[in-house]
Amino acid sequence: MTQDARTLLTPDRVSAGQAKIARVVSDLRRVIVGKEQVIDEVVTALLAQGHVLLEGLPGLGKTELVKALSRLLSLEVRRIQFTPDLLPTDVTGSHILQEREGRREFVFHAGPIFTNLLLADEINRASPKTQSALLEAMQERRVTTFGETRPLPAPFFVLATQNPIELEGTYPLPEAQLDRFMFKVDIAGVERSVLEEILLTRVHGEPPPLTPVLSASELNELFGLVDAVHLPRGVANYIARLVAASHPGSSDAPESVKTFVKYGASPRAAISIGVASRSLALLGGKPNVGFDEVRRVAAPAMAHRLVLDYAARLEGWDGRRVVAALLEAVPEVERGLPRTLEAR
């Protein structure tokens, strides 16, 4: 038996990290009522230093969630309202000819992307050219203009929103762009009880006042804790099998994948699941990743990365349903129970 020389996070460190995250989550739940799962997924992605694509109807609190997050984390936040005429330089910034001390020279004016938390509102309304301006920034956390590469401030998150119903005049995000989002979080409508709660607690809909609960150093410390969460080999094997089975050509692929999926999830999906599982484990006060965390993050991490066939649309299958079928088909442990044994 091979033994990993790594040591686990101590219970104290895990508890301390979990408490800090719990404060953020608690305050977010005060702002966004009735969206516990959405908040958990967004916080999980942030702790994993991943970008999030929020998809939902207007008025469900997407922008408010991002604003609340920026206030709690004392991060610099900027918002770009994506429109069809938005240019890439409107995002990244551009060089402007300026006169300085009698000389004219190009001076770089940083765009709104140079921030910690970027809210890309209605990202699918910008042209693909503008959307692609985000590719390098999201993946490599830097911007190149006029041959000059400038790093983005750390941490850097993109929280993009898009409206699923107003498709006229929109440009669906290309697969390469979608792949750079760690999670795609679907924001569903609110229940009646939640609406009552909102009406009783907010007169004009303004959120409760928030104070920062995490400094930049504490956030960096949390990032370190997330990275230190142990990922057992057996769980990593589960993630690998899960992603591999999302390809229709795989022998382990279930029938739904073979029927409805054109292209499976990328290795980036596996990396995202791994790090998001670490983040979720820390959120749950655990020093390690388990199968349960993988199952919980699989849908938001993989669903938007699957390229579905037209047959899926006709049959009413979406990415989340395919991922659910994948989770059903792929066993957690590669060598499962003997056939004569049945789990209770």
């Binding site: 142990h230 057996g234 990743v289 388990g290």
Partner: peptide, 17 residues
């Protein structure tokens, strides 16, 4: 329940947990 703690302890042999 898929906690993964047994696998982790088997691999790390960390007595802290």
């Amino acid at each position: 329940g898929g906690q993964g703690i047994l696998l982790t302890l088997l691999e790390t042999n960390d007595p802290a947990w």
